[in-house]
């Protein structure tokens, strides 16, 4: 057990160090891509906490991502607060939305939970359009370059952006590792495996689930808020159904219930689309075929298969 802990520390420390080191060797294009992938992988990790570890399949996470994105963006554009404060506002807002929606949606389960979260997210998307006066509706708005700095660090600078994305990713990774190794995380896994038994053992299952949604939403919001200030755009497409399905795909591809799976899945999907779009216009066709093949031949996702076949201690 302790040996496994050490291996796990070594692995994740290694991944973080590797990501940190990569910024010095990557060509500009991939450097920028990796920064974006790290931000989005944090979103996927948040999703994984809920789906992979707690067993709750939400189809409305775009709402939490968008809450972070718009919380931050509107705080800057409407109230003129600084990027650092706006980032905190975005995360808090997203977490709050997560807890409120979670408290309602948790009255349902299974397919109904999927649909309820989907409906709330759809209502959120339409709300953004409805308040077009402030949000510019579907077009969205730009966060001015001058507003995108935190204590003198210009977030539009490639190295600063990479480093900021790295910090967001590391925070998410450390949080996931801590949760997974903690008693709290073990209860979540117990709920996933057998909710009734967890309840009989005396755990307040509903409260654990709500906490999981809160954590998951806060990571989604962090990712959304960071995306806004790092890439300078706030738009309603990030609140659409597609962006609720994407983290599900990333997590399933990488391996649900593995800490590194979301990163692997996000990276894999990004380059799958990027490379195949060079070959054919119908790159989503390739994405579709890959998805079908994965479910047929690697249902646990990439990291999940790795754990099943080789590295059993993978968290």
């Amino acid at each position: 057990m302790t040996a496994d802990m050490r291996k796990s520390l070594l692995l994740h420390g290694g991944v973080l160090l590797g990501l940190l080191a990569l910024q010095y060797v990557l060509p500009a294009y991939h450097h920028g891509n990796l920064a974006r992938v790290m931000v989005l992988a944090s979103y996927a990790m948040g999703y994984n906490l809920l789906f992979g570890y707690t067993g709750l399949l939400s189809l409305g996470h775009a709402l939490f991502f968008a809450a972070g994105l718009y919380g931050t963006g509107l705080a800057i554009s409407q109230f003129g607060v600084s990027a650092g404060v706006a980032l905190a506002v975005g995360v808090l807002f997203g977490t709050l939305v997560g807890i409120v929606i979670g408290a309602l949606a948790l009255r349902t389960e299974g397919v109904a939970f999927m649909i309820v979260t989907l409906m709330f997210a759809q209502a959120g998307y339409l709300t953004i359009l409805y308040f077009g006066q402030y949000t510019r509706g579907d077009e969205g708005f730009v966060i001015a370059l001058a507003d995108r700095n935190i204590s003198g660090w210009d977030l539009s600078d490639p190295s600063v952006r990479y480093f900021a994305a790295f910090i967001v990713f590391s925070a998410a990774l450390l949080m996931c590792l801590t949760v997974v190794k903690s008693r709290f995380g073990k209860v979540l896994i117990a709920i996933r495996e057998n909710e009734e038994r967890a309840r009989m053992l005396g755990y307040n299952v509903d409260r654990f689930k709500l906490a999981a949604i809160g954590l998951s939403a806060s990571l989604a919001a962090l990712s959304g808020a960071a995306y806004g200030v790092l890439f300078g755009y706030v738009g309603a497409s990030f609140a659409s159904v597609q962006y609720s399905i994407l983290p599900l795909l990333w997590v399933l591809l990488g391996g649900a219930g593995t800490v590194l799976g979301p990163l692997v899945g996000t990276l894999f999907m990004f380059y799958l689309i990027d490379l195949s779009s060079g070959i054919t216009t119908a790159y989503m066709l390739i994405a579709g075929v890959v998805l079908v093949f994965l479910t047929l031949f690697a249902p646990q996702g990439l990291m999940g298969e790795l754990r099943r076949r080789a590295i059993r201690w993978l968290p």
Partner: peptide, 13 residues
């Protein structure tokens, strides 16, 4: 997941 994949395949074809 599989039907999401199938969705994309039908759409793109």
């Amino acid at each position: 997941v599989a039907t999401i994949g199938i969705l994309y395949i039908f759409q793109q074809v």
